[in-house]
């Protein structure tokens, strides 16, 4: 580095000055650190911090989409209000509670399925066989496909009249008449879960695979010498050892599933049988132009996710390495 010496450059170095120079470099570095962080923090404040505060504020007003500036403060009326002998507001809306239930059901079922199949695929990819790299790349494909595209692809395959899935099921004699997968109240939630599971197995499998590859070999050699059944080895040795990685994958997926929007919006649009909290909030905000009410729904969704995040930070602190 042929950089011209800065102010703190050593000239006549006396012992005390050496110490002084050390702190000066450090102070310079800390100042530089904050200078470097400022643009990032400003960007995050502009796109995340401020909008979030505005959303909280809007949830206590009667703001509408066409004019958010002249909104009136109305307290908790968007959430709950007693008027003329009856309760109104978000907390009394059965469709809101239906979407809360849908979101929780979707999250729990799809994340559980993803974890089970993700572990199976990871174990498979961890085995020795020819063409392993090719299979690994192929398994990544669903992850790389845009959610909208995968929803459309499955919508076509699940089409009630011309879809290949009904065609196959009927050819195999499993069903007698075509199932309207995305239109019926009974099947649409399962159709959505099916698509989400397909798309996110690769993510879980990759995280689990990374953990599997870091496992110590000697445990397995010992188990093999002792002639322990592989299934028992999996539940007694492998599973406890990959639990930390699994925990991280589960929380990542859970946070994603709780805010799910696009796959459901494309597959079943605004149908109440699959409506989630995100879809409900957006419908109120954009389609019904009721920013106040929609923001109240967004705020509740945020609080639920914040709760899960805090839980994650608490449980995953050691994996995150924030505290060094």
């Amino acid at each position: 580095m042929s950089i011209p010496a800065t102010e703190g450059a050593p000239q006549a170095v006396r012992p005390r000055q050496a110490g002084y120079r050390g702190t000066k470099v450090r102070r310079q570095r800390v100042r530089a650190a904050w200078t470097f962080l400022t643009p990032m923090l400003f960007a995050l404040a502009l796109v995340a911090g401020w909008p979030l505060l505005r959303t909280f504020y809007f949830s206590f007003t009667d703001a509408s989409l066409s004019d958010t500036t002249s909104a009136l403060f109305i307290g908790f009326e968007n959430y709950l209000v007693y008027d003329d002998g009856a309760w109104y507001g978000l907390l009394t809306d059965p469709i809101w509670w239906r979407s809360v239930w849908n979101t929780l059901f979707f999250s729990v079922v799809s994340v559980s399925l993803e974890v089970v199949f993700g572990i199976i695929v990871a174990l498979l990819l961890n085995a020795e066989f020819k063409g392993r790299m090719l299979v690994r790349a192929a398994v990544l494909i669903p992850w790389a496909i845009p959610t909208i595209v995968s929803a459309k692809m499955w919508a076509w395959m699940l089409n009630d009249q011309f879809g290949i899935i009904n065609h196959l099921l009927m050819a195999l004699g499993i069903i007698d008449s075509p199932i309207p997968w995305t239109a019926s109240a009974t099947y649409s939630m399962w159709a959505v879960i099916m698509v989400d599971v397909w798309k996110t197995i690769p993510f879980v499998a990759l995280l689990v695979l990374a953990a599997l590859q870091m496992l110590p070999k000697d445990c397995y050699e010992a188990a093999e010498v002792d002639g322990i059944h592989p299934v028992k080895v999996f539940f007694r040795v492998t599973l406890p050892l990959i639990t930390p990685a699994l925990l991280v994958a589960v929380i990542f997926r859970l946070l994603d599933a709780l805010r799910v929007f696009d796959v459901i919006y494309v597959l079943t649009s605004n149908s109440t049988s699959t409506m989630t909290m995100s879809i409900y909030a957006r419908q109120q905000l954009v389609e019904f132009q009721d920013v106040g009410y929609g923001s109240a729904a967004s705020t509740l969704l945020f609080l639920i996710i914040a709760l899960v995040t805090v839980l994650y930070l608490y449980l995953g602190r050691r994996q995150l390495g924030v505290d060094q």
Binding site: P51, T68, R282
Partner: peptide, 26 residues
């Protein structure tokens, strides 16, 4: 530093819908 890291991590977990109305205004 830890605080900034936690802020960054927290933002990455924001549900997009939660900032939708505020971001629309911005």
């Amino acid at each position: 530093r830890t605080t900034v890291m936690l802020v960054v991590l927290g933002v990455s977990m924001f549900p997009q819908v939660a900032v939708l109305s505020g971001l629309f205004e911005v």
